[in-house]
Structures are given as structure tokens and as C-alpha cells.
């Protein structure tokens, strides 16, 4: 099939970017979206052009590397899929596809479709872990955990850190990402101990890094490839408010 691709090209963080239009004559519905971009890049190299840069690795929806805005939607059309899982069956001959990087202040564009998501790593450094030293772990069955709690924690933990939630949000909020981590640990006895402090630290970091605040539009949930639920944001808010009270209390005494 023949496609018209309008792709954001930007050579470096400092230079200005712009859309460039390419025609790809021999795309196939059997390709995945990234294989279609591979084909375009092979063609660009043949024409002595610089290929389009995009992050990718696992190509099966688990590493969170890939991510671009396709026809206005993070990870393109389709529910609960990453860009690498998007199939070209979603498009037809003659289509025009607009492809651009995540657009969010805390995720500056580095080149073409690649953005800098290191802010997510910084948020994790602020508290996305349980303080336990190697060697000091108790026997694994020490704390029994109800199956549904374990499953809920698992669902929260399945966030792949792709950043689609931020890209989908008009405020560029990272609440869903933060909530998923805080929620995972808050649901488990191992993580409960530090839960309030963790929520506080991670949210403070998120604000500091320039992510916006959450106004509950739900756009993040709709575009999250892992179906991370807004319910986790409610749990995060809860922990955050409690941590705020605790701080107030601690300050007074």
C-alpha cells in the first residue's frame, strides 16, 4: 500500500524541527508500525538521507522504549498497545499518517522522534523503591498477601515507563506513572512502611521537574498501553494527603 508520512524531523535539541513529508510506496498491512518505519529508513538511506531516529528495543510492548504520537494519539490508534505492537492493518492504502514525538516540557526532543525521559528516572530515584538491603530479607512467605491484593499490586507494577500518560495529558502530568509505583508498594506489606514518605518524595520530585498537576481528565488512562487505572491516582492522593498531615504534625511537634 502507498502511504504519505508526515514525520517530525529535528536534528538536535537546540535546532528547530519541522514536519517533512515522505511517500512510502511499498508498505504492507503485514508490517508492524515500526517495521514500516524500518522500511522507510532503508529507503531514506538509499536516497542518501539521514534515517528517522526513534527509540525501540524489545518490539513486544514490554520495555517501554518506543513511543510516538501517531495521528494525534500516543501510541496511535488501538487500545492498550504500544507503538511497536501497532499493526499496519490499522491503516489502508492512500492514508496519510502524521508522526511526531511526545510533546511535553519535561520530555525535551533529542532527535526526530526521540525524547529525553530521564525525568522518570529521577522520580524513581526520589523514592521508587523499598529500603531493604541485600542479605537482610526475611523468608519470602513471612508476610501472607491476599491474592487480589497481589494481583492489584501486579497490575500497578506493570507500568512500562513509556511516558504516554504524560504525552496524553494537557497538563503534562506524570500522576499515573507515579501513582502506579506508589500504589504497587502501598498494596504490599513490604512497601507499606514507607508509603507516605514515598508518595511525598515522588510527588515533590515530579513537581520540581516541571510536570503539571492532575486535573482528572482521564486522558492518561485512555492512552496507557498497560491499562493502568485511575484508581491508583486516588490511592496516591490518599497517601499524599496523609503524608502531608504527617508532615504538618511532625513540624508542630
Amino acid at each position: 500500500m502507498k502511504l504519505t508520512l508526515k514525520i517530525w524531523r529535528q536534528n538536535s535539541p537546540k535546532e528547530k524541527g519541522a514536519f517533512k513529508t515522505y511517500i512510502l510506496d511499498d508498505a504492507s498491512q503485514d508490517m508492524t508500525f515500526l517495521e514500516m518505519l524500518d522500511a522507510l529508513n532503508e529507503k531514506l538511506i538509499a536516497e542518501n538521507e539521514d534515517p528517522v531516529a526513534f527509540d525501540h528495543d524489545c518490539r513486544e510492548g514490554i520495555c517501554g522504549s518506543c513511543g510516538m504520537i501517531i495521528n494525534g494519539r500516543p501510541h496511535g490508534p488501538g487500545k492498550e498497545i504500544t507503538t511497536c505492537q501497532l499493526n499496519m492493518k490499522a491503516f489502508k492504502d492512500g492514508d496519510t499518517i502524521v508522526i511526531e514525538p511526545w510533546r511535553a516540557k519535561p520530555f525535551p526532543v533529542i532527535k526526530d522522534l526521540i525524547v529525553d525521559r530521564s525525568a522518570f528516572d529521577k522520580i524513581m530515584e526520589a523514592g521508587g523503591f523499598i529500603n531493604t538491603d541485600v542479605g537482610s530479607a526475611p523468608e519470602a512467605n513471612t508476610y501472607p498477601i491476599k491474592t487480589h491484593k497481589a494481583e492489584e499490586a501486579f497490575e500497578a507494577a506493570s507500568c512500562i515507563g513509556c511516558g504516554a500518560c504524560v504525552a496524553a495529558c494537557k497538563n503534562s502530568s506524570a500522576m499515573l506513572f507515579v501513582a502506579a509505583k506508589v500504589s504497587q508498594y502501598a498494596l504490599l506489606p513490604q512497601g507499606k512502611v514507607e508509603s507516605l514518605q514515598r508518595a511525598w518524595n515522588m510527588i515533590m520530585k515530579m513537581d520540581e521537574l516541571g510536570f503539571g498537576s492532575c486535573t482528572n481528565t482521564g486522558a492518561c488512562e485512555a492512552e496507557c498501553p498497560k491499562g493502568i487505572s485511575l484508581a491508583h491516582i486516588a490511592r496516591l492522593n490518599n497517601e499524599f494527603i496523609k503524608s502531608g498531615f504527617n508532615k504538618l504534625f511532625a513540624d508542630k511537634h
Partner: peptide, 23 residues
């Protein structure tokens, strides 16, 4: 091997559980 499972569980890895709550 057993130390590994203890370590990962302590780190909050949400392994599947039986109905009684054990791994």
C-alpha cells in the same frame, strides 16, 4: 535460589499468590 526469592519479595516484586496468601 531461595535467597533470591526472599530478596526479590522483600523488594516488592509482586509474585503470584495462593488463596492463603503464600507464594
Amino acid at each position: 535460589s531461595n535467597n533470591v526469592i526472599d530478596q526479590l519479595t522483600a523488594q516488592g516484586v509482586p509474585f503470584a499468590r495462593e488463596y492463603g496468601g503464600t507464594l
